[in-house]
Computed example of a mutant assay.
Amino acid sequence: MDRFVSAACLINPEFRTNTKAIQLAYARWSATNAGDTLSPRALGMALRNQYDIAVVRSNGQRYYRGIALHGGQQPLNQ
């Protein structure tokens, strides 16, 4: 998990990213870098436990609060 986060993500409480975007980026990264891929549920649990990332809902969408993909950060107030 640490390798994925350091390679592909930014941690900041002001960021939020759609859960599907993080899951897709992780699956792509894992296919070329890690071999075994965590399930979406296990990925979410690992993010919560290791980085204090929370899931928030807005307009019917689910987001991870506190994380963004490089080049794709979205402040929470948007």
Rank of each mutant, 00 (worst) to 15 (best):
F15V: 02
T19I: 15
A54N: 15
G60A: 07
N59W: 09
T37P: 00
N18V: 09
C9Y: 04
R48L: 12
T17G: 01
Y64P: 08
A27R: 13
L43N: 02
F4C: 03
V56P: 03
G60C: 04
V56Y: 01
S58C: 09
G72S: 14
S6P: 00
L10K: 09
L24I: 14
K20D: 13
E14R: 10
S58G: 06
D2L: 14
A46G: 00
Y51L: 03
A54E: 15
L69W: 04
M45W: 12
R41G: 03
G66A: 01
T37V: 07
F15A: 11
L38G: 04
N59I: 07
G66Y: 00
A27V: 05
V5Q: 01
N49V: 06
I53Q: 09
Q74I: 10
N77M: 10
Q61I: 09
Y26C: 06
A34E: 13
Q78R: 12
A25Q: 06
D2W: 07
I53D: 05
L47W: 03
F4E: 01
G44V: 08
A31L: 09
T32R: 11
S58W: 07
R3C: 02
R28N: 14
E14T: 10
A27I: 01
G44P: 08
L10A: 11
R41P: 06
R16T: 08
K20N: 09
G71S: 04
P13C: 01
R57L: 05
G35D: 02
L76G: 07
A31E: 06
D2R: 14
T19N: 01
R65S: 08
R48W: 11
M45D: 14
L69K: 06
L76V: 15
G71V: 02
Q50E: 10
A42S: 14
H70Y: 15
K20R: 14
L10E: 13
D36K: 15
A27G: 02
A21Q: 15
S39C: 06
S30D: 00
H70F: 14
P75C: 01
Q61T: 12
S39Q: 03
A8E: 12
Q61F: 10
K20Q: 11
W29I: 03
M1S: 11
G71F: 04
N18S: 06
A8R: 14
I53N: 11
C9F: 04
D2Q: 12
I22K: 07
R65N: 05
G71K: 03
A54W: 09
S58H: 12
V56N: 05
A25C: 11
R62C: 12
G44C: 08
S30G: 05
R65F: 01
V5W: 01
Q73C: 06
A25F: 00
Q50N: 13
A34D: 11
L76I: 15
V5T: 01
R65W: 00
Y51I: 02
T37H: 03
G66M: 01
